[in-house]
Structures are given as C-alpha cells and as structure tokens.
C-alpha cells in the first residue's frame, strides 16, 4: 500500500464487505460444477454482480467463495432454436434488449428488461441473475412467466429443467440445491400473439415496481403475471379466466379476481391497498397493449 492510503481507503469504500472471500474465475461450466460441489453451501455464483455485491456489502450474504462467470463464453449469448429462446447465464440485459428475435417475438421481455435499474445496471446485470435472486419485485419475472420460462439447472450430479413457477419458493429463495447453478433460461415462442409489460413505480426512473404486470394475448385467451404483489412473482389465474371469457367483465369483477390471486404488503413504497387498487389499472393497460399488438400482428 502506498503511504497515506489509510484515509483514502475509508473514503473510497475499498471493498464490498468486511469479510474476504476467495475469488474464482472458472474456464468452463464443468469447472463451475466442481467448485460448487467442492465448496458446497459456502460459494455463490457471480454473473453481473449487481445484486450479489450489494448483498455482500450489507452482509445479507457472506460467501466464502465467489465464482465469477461473467466471462464464461460457454454460457453467454441469446439463441432461438425450435421455438425456444435460450438465454445463457452470463448474458447481460443489454444483449437481450438488442436481440432481433427478442424485439420481434418477446415484446414483454424486452420492455421488462428496459425497466431494470439504470442503463449502467442493464450493462452488467443478467437475466439469470435476476431469476436466481428471486426478488418478488423483479421486473423480468412476469414476462418470463407468460412465456412459459424453464430454468436449466446443472451440477456435478447432472442437469435438470425446472418450470419457473416451481423454481421460486419465496423471497430470495429458489429450488436450487447448494451445489447447483443455473446455466440458462428458456422461453417458449407463442406464435401469433401480442405481449406487454407495464410497471408502476414512484418515479419513471430507477425504482422497484410498486406493481408490475405482464400480459400476453393470443387465440384461446390472455395470460397475466405480476410482480410486487405476492411473496413470489406469479400468474394471475383468476383474472386470466375472467378476461378470457366471452363477456368483458366489469371493474368490480376484475378487482375481486385480483384479490383472489394476490396478497400485497404495505412497505415504504406503497400501502397494500394502493397496490391492490393500481393492479386493476396495470392489468387493463398491459392487456390493452398486448391485445393491440396481437391485432397488429394479425392485420
């Protein structure tokens, strides 16, 4: 350390946490498997780091080993094959936003990605990291659910695919075993359809969603999923049934169905009552935009 650095260290917040960790930069997915098996339960995969480093700094997580996969090219990139969009674990949000197939066929995902944090965050954060962080307020979650996302999990013991709804167990909790990690997430192409994501925040800029709703309209009915309204991001089954019927329901009917589907909390951002009241508004807006996009596709 050069002379006089002590004061600077205090000012510059040198480290992300008081506790040190061992840093690994594996060269292959197999190496990630091995590291997680070797350091079972005390290692954490770092993809973008935009959540993990905040959690280490606040001591919410104290991994003894950090496995950095940001430069692992084997799990980086977006591909579209056999009707499924595949997003690798190290793929940053800006790459998803810019991908031509995402722009054309996964409108709600693109809109959701653009809502995550700031451009600086989107340039580092990953979709898979967003999924693994299991925040009930994650903007990308509702869009993933309406596109039937599957989570590609792997470990030294083998690979498995888990439906996204089964992957999230609670706030910050996933179905991952301590030696497992997520290699990719896949989304199902929905053929002729329209989709949209509507986020209500306190400001138009960087903030977590008070309410986030993704809608997907196609022959056979509408799909809806919401963020920030329950312990996990979830589909709105009762509202879907109501809106997929032949008659268009009244506002009160929608509100009743919303009440059956969600259980919002009051926190520093908004009261549960406000969230509930705004859910109907967000559903209507998302559903209208998705429906209009579907019509445009059919025209």
């Amino acid at each position: 350390m050069p002379d006089g650095s002590t004061e600077q260290r205090v000012l510059a917040g040198p480290a992300v946490g008081a506790a040190e960790f061992t840093y690994h930069r594996p060269g292959s997915p197999q190496e990630v498997d091995d590291l997680l098996a070797q350091h079972r339960g005390v290692a954490r995969v770092l993809a973008g780091g935009t959540d993990l480093l905040v959690q280490i700094r606040s001591a919410a997580r104290r991994p003894a080993h950090v496995i950095d996969i940001a430069d692992l090219s084997a799990v980086r990139g977006v591909s579209f094959d056999g009707g499924r969009l595949r997003v690798g674990a190290a793929t940053q949000l800006w790459e998803i936003e810019a991908h031509p197939v995402v722009r054309k066929r996964f409108a709600a995902l693109r809109e959701a990605v653009r809502c995550v944090g700031s451009l600086q965050i989107q340039n580092r954060a990953t979709l898979v990291g967003n999924v693994c962080n299991a925040s009930p307020a994650a903007d990308t979650g509702p869009a993933l659910l309406v596109y039937d996302a599957q989570v590609g999990v792997r470990s030294v013991r083998g690979n498995r695919e888990v439906g996204l709804a089964e992957f999230w167990l609670g706030p910050g909790q996933t179905a991952l075993e301590p030696d497992e990690w997520v290699e990719h997430v896949t989304l199902q192409d929905q053929g002729r359809h329209g989709s949209a994501y509507v986020k209500l925040g306190r400001t138009r800029g960087v903030d977590l969603a008070l309410v986030g709703v993704a809608a997907l309209a196609r022959r056979g009915g509408v799909r809806l999923a919401c963020a920030s309204l329950a312990p996990t991001i979830r589909r709105l089954a009762a509202v879907e049934d109501l809106l997929s019927g032949d008659e268009s329901p009244g506002e009160e009917q929608v509100a009743e169905a919303v009440g059956a589907d969600v259980s919002p909390i009051s926190d520093l951002r908004a009261s549960a009552r406000y969230r509930l009241a705004m859910t109907g508004v967000c559903i209507r807006r998302a559903n209208e935009t998705a429906g209009r996009r579907w019509e445009e596709r059919n025209a």
């Binding site: 917040g13 950095d68 800006w94 340039n123």
Partner: peptide, 9 residues
C-alpha cells in the same frame, strides 16, 4: 458500455 464501478469487482 457505462457501468457502475461500485458494483464491479
């Protein structure tokens, strides 16, 4: 690309 250096090791 612009990134926040407080969130990059």
């Amino acid at each position: 690309l612009p990134v926040n250096t407080c969130l990059v090791l």
